[in-house]
């Protein structure tokens, strides 16, 4: 199997998996889910790192790679933390009200 067909299979199966993963989501979780999925889409960090790694000392490539790494990491770090901040409120709520009743 050529690298391309393999990559296309990966694309297809990944898409199918994504379609199946979130069938039923309670509306409560739509915002955190969107924010979490958004953080995951920052996986472009891998592309940025690859770009830097293959730059071979070319400064423009290093700068572009570093810049895109910054943007992607902003997405990843910010995305995961903000999602956690939202979800922390839900879990805190559960334990507290459980204790009060």
């Amino acid at each position: 199997m050529s690298a391309l067909t393999q990559a296309l299979w990966v694309l297809l199966l990944g898409s199918l998996l994504g379609l199946e993963l979130i069938g039923k989501v309670p509306p409560t979780l739509h915002t955190p889910l969107m924010s979490g999925a958004n953080a995951i889409s920052g996986i472009t960090v891998l592309a940025s790192l690859t770009l830097i790694g293959q730059a071979n000392g070319q400064v423009p490539l290093l700068v572009l790679g570093s810049l895109s790494l910054g943007f992607a990491l902003f997405n990843v770090v910010g995305g995961f933390l903000v999602t956690d901040r939202m979800l922390a409120m839900f879990s805190r709520k559960k334990t507290r009200s459980g204790g009060a009743r």
Binding site: V10, G14, L17, G18, V25, H30
Partner: peptide
């Protein structure tokens, strides 16, 4: 590719 495809498809469903 996998991660991007998963997020792309999941985002479409959402």
């Amino acid at each position: 590719i996998v991660a991007g495809a998963m997020v792309g498809a999941a985002g479409l469903i959402l």
